[in-house]
Design a protein around this nucleic acid. Structure first.
Length: 356
DNA sequence: CCGATTTGACCAAT
DNA sequence: ATTGGTCAAATCGG
């Protein structure tokens, strides 16, 4: 699974750093050409996040990143124990603003130390984190970004105490590539413009990023149905001038402000952003129970061709949101990964050529 | 025709 | 017993 003698924790660390570098690189490039501040900011966010994660991995618990200057109001909430606890009053917002802890994946109480195999399949043991994405109801969905991951909705459920139903999605490549990433999208009762996207597990599929399909922005959630109709009949690509928006792959609460529809350079992330854990996924994930239905999916066509179909329903927003969040979610954290248990040698150094 | 979504039923956890 | 999560048949849509 992992190359050479590298523990995958180390690889994880390196990956994070690499990402940071990559994004930084893009940022610099981006700044040269465009005046789009927003986009730049989102990139900055990603950079920070990557580094924070790296520090986390190093078991460094200091106050990490301080909010960026005029930060694009980015805030991610760590999933509180129960996602569904959003009942009535207590809006699940426990804005543990991420300042100090990057997307601190909440390792959903790993009861028993089960074999990695089960770990991946038992949602209980999957790392989980929640991101809140705010949508500008007026402008409609502004940042229909697609992180490249394709999700397949497999259920919807009314949640006690919640006004809006919760949607369940799983990676399209679950069966073809044993990618067990799933997510749940729940609209906040209090603030309908906020969607909470809870991720569980991270992608082990090797497809899905790169592709920069821009999801046509639906309008306000309320109009879902209408939209659905409109789209289905005529254009399914209602391209508002600027939408590609940040390819924000980070799970964060994107504030309306930043989502401002400034056009942005539809940059595509380099291969570095591919699911890096496709390696070990193979070793940990068991041969998945063959599901009669979805076996014949051609991952390539979908992921790269951007065959993303945009169904505009509750899920649209959901999907869109997903885009922003899932993408970079540290791929290496999905397995039972206990930071505590591992101590990385501080002076652990990687040779330049290591990455390649 | 194929793949995605919908939606009620079923299952598991609490 | 209740509720959240998943399954899977039916249905939709390109």
């Amino acid at each position: 699974m992992e190359g050479g003698g590298w523990s995958w924790e180390q690889r994880a660390l390196v990956n994070e750093l690499i990402q940071g570098m990559e994004v930084a690189r893009q940022l610099s490039f981006h700044l040269k050409g465009t005046p789009s501040v927003e986009n730049a900011e989102s990139l900055v966010q990603r950079i920070l996040s990557s580094y924070e994660k790296a520090l986390l991995i190093l078991n460094w618990s200091g106050p990490v990143g301080q909010q960026p200057p005029q930060a694009a109001a980015v805030t991610a909430t760590v999933a509180a124990a129960a996602t569904g606890s959003g009942s009535g009053s207590g809006v699940p917002e426990s804005p543990l603003s991420m300042n100090g802890s990057p997307r601190s994946e909440d390792f959903d109480g790993i009861k028993d130390n089960q074999a990695p195999i089960d770990a991946c399949k038992k949602r209980k043991t999957m790392p989980r984190w929640t991101d809140q994405v705010r949508v500008n109801s007026e402008n409609g969905l502004e940042g229909p970004i697609d992180d490249g991951y394709s999700w397949r909705k497999y259920g919807q459920k009314d949640i006690l105490g919640a006004k809006y139903p919760r949607s369940y999605y799983r990676c399209t490549y679950r069966n073809t590539q044993n990618c067990w990433a799933i997510k749940q999208v729940q609209r906040s009762d209090e603030d309908p413009t906020i969607f909470e996207v809870t991720y569980r597990g991270t992608h082990s599929c090797s497809f899905g990023h790169q592709q920069t399909v821009v999801t046509p922005p639906p309008a306000s959630p309320e109009k879902q149905e209408q939209i659905k109709h409109n789209f289905s009949s005529s254009n399914q690509q209602q391209p508002p001038p600027g939408e590609a928006l940040l390819n924000l792959q980070k799970g964060l609460k994107v504030d309306t402000q930043d989502l401002a529809k400034r056009e942005t350079v539809p940059f595509t992330f380099p291969s570095t952003y591919e699911c890096q854990n496709s390696n070990f996924s193979q070793s940990f994930l068991s041969p998945a129970t063959p599901e009669p239905n979805y076996n014949h999916v051609s991952p390539f066509v979908n992921s790269f061709g951007g065959t993303h179909t945009f169904q505009h329903s509750d899920s649209d927003l959901a999907e869109i949101l997903s885009a922003q969040t899932s993408a970079t979610s540290s791929p290496m954290l999905d397995l039972d990964f206990h930071l505590e248990s591992f101590e990385l040698v501080p002076n652990f150094s990687y040779a330049p050529g290591f990455f390649s």
